[in-house]
Structure formats: C-alpha cells, structure tokens
Simulated assay, not measured.
Amino acid sequence: MSVTSSPSNIDALPAARDLHARFVDISGQEPEPIRPWAPVKISRARIEAEIERLASLPRPANGRRGTLIVHPDAVGLGPGLAPGVDVTIDVLKPGERTTPLRRNTGQVEIGISGRGVVHVVGRSTRMERWDVCSIPSMKGHYFENDGDELWVRLSYSNAPLLAKLGVLYSEPLTDEQMAAGPSVLPSAGRRPERYIRETAPDIELNDSGARLRGYEYLVDIEVVENNPLHWAWNEVREHLSWEEGDGKRTIMALYNPATERRNGATHSFFVTASSMPPGIAAQPLRRGHRHSSVAINYHFLGSGKSVVEGHVVDWSAGDLLLSAPGWSEHDHYHGPDGFGVFTVQDHPLHIGMESLIWQEKMSGPILALGSEAGQTGYVGPRTTGA
C-alpha cells in the first residue's frame, strides 16, 4: 500500500500482513561449496540472426528493440547472462530513437555495428563501431540512430543484482525533463544548516579508529561526480599492441575516475580492451586462474580457445562468451591470427563489497585483493586477459 498523504489517525490504517519468519537450525553446518555456472557462448551467427529478427519487428512503443541474453541456469528474479549481470542486444533502425528513461542501474554500452548518439542529461555522445560508453545510475538517457544503417549495441547492466535485492527502479521521462538539464526532477534544496554533515558530530571513540557520526552523514552524502564517459575506439586502439615488438600493451582498462580505487568503467564493472598481434605463438596448455568476479568477453577480432573448468570453448570474431563464471578456473589461448576482445567483469562491485577473492596460481594462495598491502593477483606474464 502507498500512503500519499499523512493520516490523521494511525489506527485507521490497515495492519501489515501477519507473516512469520522461519528459524533454520544451522548448528555445526558447514558452508555450501561454490557451484559456478557453466560457460556459455553466444555465437556470431546467433547474434546476427537475432539482430535480423529484431530489425524486422514493428517499432515498439518505447522505441527499444532488445533481446535479453539469459543463461540456462538463471531462474527467478533478475535473469541474466551471469547471476548479477545482464547483457542485451539492442537494435535501432535509421531515424529511430528510444524514449527517455532513467534507472538505478550502472550501464556499459559497446557498439558492435553502425553508429548513433547516446543522449544523457547534459551530454550527447556519438558512438561508432567498437566505441564504449558508460551511463551512470539515475541519469536520464535515450538512444538515437542518425546514421543510414542498423545501429547495434551490447548493453551490460547490474539489473539482475538489483532485481534480486528487490530495488530495481526504472522511470520514464519526458523530452521536457531531458531538456531541463541535470536536475531531471525538482530539487528539494538544501536542508537547514543543522541537518547537513558539515555541522554534524564526528567523534573519535578510542585508539582503534572507531568513530561515532551524526545521521546527517548517511543522508547528506558527499558527492563524487560521475559523468557519462566515452572511450572512442579510434583513440583506444592507439594504446594497444597490433604488431609484434611495438612495445605497446595487450590489455588496457577503460577507467572512470569516479570509481576511484575500484578502477571501473562503472561502479559495478570494469571494461578492458585487449589485443594480440597475429603470428605470436600461444602459450602451451597450463593451469588457469580464478576469481570471484565474473567475466564476459566479446570477441571482435581473431580466434582462439578458452579452457573453463577443464572444458574447451572455441571462439572467433563476433562471439560473446561468458568466459569466466565466478570462481571458475579458466585460461585463454589465441590463434595465429591474434585477437581483439572487450571484457566486462564485475570486479569493482566485489572490491566495494570486499568480496574479491583471487587465486592467480591454482597451487598458490587465495587472496582478498585490495584488503591488505602487498597482495597482488598478477604474478606472471598473462597475455590473454581475464
């Protein structure tokens, strides 16, 4: 029930349902083992067939032609390609646009075909093929195809996690609200001075570092500006290796300064762009590594194989692959034609939750990265990404 006005008599309101929580005796019970999902490849042929099907549909009322890619193990709230990550194939025909909305998700968009414009309140960004952009939580946005061919994107979000938490929020916006600027909805303004963090108590209790703070710190939160960002492929590619011996890196992270030590493109996801020049011999078969964060690879160039929990998955340009389900041992091997791949991984989310466990060598220690100085998850020359 939603209460839209203050009641004059609380006794006039209906009582909540009489629900009873269960008691579950876990005395002496050992924790359940981690049961990783299986890797799943969505082939280029299947993606292209789905693009064609979406393009054949009449324009939906909200302008969005999209297909959610769902893992066979996904059940219940928040279906996605991984337990906390969804990936959709989004298609816009020339001259079309979506209607504006805002959600409390963090999103990453990767253009895989055509071009268009991402309009976020206060900023518009042209996306070409293989460009990447971020859309921060609760920023109004819409997509417009001003080109002459289909514009196709892979869109990643943390919607499945928010759905499981029961807080996935989405709100349609008007063009007038989008045009109004960053303050999409009317601002309530600043509270009186006595209700802001600058005037709230902040008390050191003892030499352990424990403190007491006024409630104002919880509701008048310091703002870290998080803008929609654009990583243009023609700029990114200049920093990757395309010829043997050119001295450039084979993997680089697309960094959003708002994520600070989490090193993400959004607060939930990092995105890396990786390349390997043709002609470089692949590593011999070896043990892999594993981490609690899940990795999803979009292979846009080349070919190769991934070994996940002892099973081989072949991939080539245009394939999308859940290449590292959380806590699955995995490793990747490129073919003679090299490769290009975008990897999206919920690594920053785990850093924020202090749940990022990492085992770089299967015979080595399990580390909690970012929780103790001197720990590093990179101990050898891995050249093929996460």
Rank of each mutant, 00 (worst) to 15 (best):
R211L: 03
R290K: 13
S316L: 03
E144Q: 14
E216I: 00
S328H: 03
D18C: 06
I135Q: 03
D86Q: 14
G352H: 14
A253Q: 09
Y142F: 15
S5G: 07
E193P: 01
G335M: 06
A200C: 06
N297H: 12
H334I: 08
R64L: 15
N297G: 07
S274H: 01
H20D: 01
D331R: 02
E171A: 10
G76Q: 14
L81F: 11
G377V: 08
E204K: 15
F339Q: 03
N104W: 13
D25G: 11
I110M: 10
M1Y: 08
V120D: 00
W231M: 07
R197E: 05
T343I: 10
V312M: 14
N145A: 10
E176G: 14
I280W: 01
T376A: 14
W358C: 06
E360C: 07
I221P: 02
S137G: 07
T98I: 06
D331C: 05
P79G: 04
D346Y: 00
H332P: 05
D73K: 12
A210P: 02
P201L: 05
G140F: 06
P348S: 03
F339S: 04
A282R: 12
S137I: 05
G370F: 05
P58I: 07
T4P: 02
G288T: 04
I47T: 09
D331P: 00
V91Y: 08
G84H: 11
H20F: 05
L356M: 08
V108Y: 00
L161N: 03
S170P: 00
L356C: 02
F339A: 06
C133Y: 06
K41A: 12
P79W: 07
D331K: 06
I26E: 11
A273T: 05
F23R: 13
R197I: 02
D146Y: 02
G302E: 02
E260M: 12
G76R: 11
E32L: 10
A180R: 15
E372A: 13
I357F: 10
Y255Q: 04
R115I: 07
P192M: 05
P94I: 10
W327R: 06
S113Q: 13
A373T: 09
R287A: 13
S157P: 00
C133W: 04
L13I: 08
E354L: 10
S274T: 12
D73G: 07
T125I: 13
W130F: 15
T88R: 15
P94L: 09
R190P: 04
Q29E: 14
S241D: 01
V24E: 11
E260T: 08
I251G: 04
G245K: 05
T98Q: 07
E354W: 09
T272I: 12
V3L: 15
N145H: 13
E222Q: 12
T88V: 10
E243M: 00
R53A: 15
H332S: 09
A282V: 08
I51Q: 02
R64P: 05
I10K: 04
V294D: 07
L77H: 03
A74F: 13
V70K: 11
R123M: 08
S8D: 15
